[in-house]
Amino acid sequence: MSQVFRKEVRFSGSGGQGLILDGIVLARAGVLDNYKVTQTQSYGPESRGGSSRADTIISDGDIYYPEAQNIDILVALTQVACDKFIFEMKEDGILIVDNNLVKNISVSIGKIYEEPFTEITLEKLGTELPMNIVTLAFMVKITKIVSEKSLEQAIRDSVKPMHIELNIKAMNLGFDLAKKYL
């Protein structure tokens, strides 16, 4: 059987961090790159706070089960999320954390990227709100899971017109942060 391209991505943290939007934007970018995609989420009753996760699966084959089971890429923005989901990762998976929010990484994983995403976003853009897009763009630059062009288009398609400019800045900030690793 031929090897199909299939990546399972999980964004995890707490409600209000914009993780579900990350999942949707990545899924849209996947669609633009002509992949099959599914995107699911799990959350509690809280709009803000509480635990939150969004899964995006991108593949060139059919996707039946829509939740990530063997995570290729985990973005963890709280300690709790990191502790919980790191055990669902593939051994050679990629873990991306905000190192102000995640202090301990309990097991070794293929590759770990630690950046103070929230702090840098606040410092460079004057607001920490688009931290989710900074993180997403960082991840895309590192993993090349979707094209940068499609990511930009997906952001434009997913946020309100008045917020596009800020989010594109956030995307570029994320790309810049990733450059030192490439």
């Binding site: 949707i24 996947g30 992949y35 099959k36 599914t38 995107q39 699911t40 829509p66």
Partner: peptide, 9 residues
């Protein structure tokens, strides 16, 4: 519920 909330291409 999963299908109601799930996004798919």
């Amino acid at each position: 519920e999963v299908l109601g909330h799930m996004r798919e291409a």
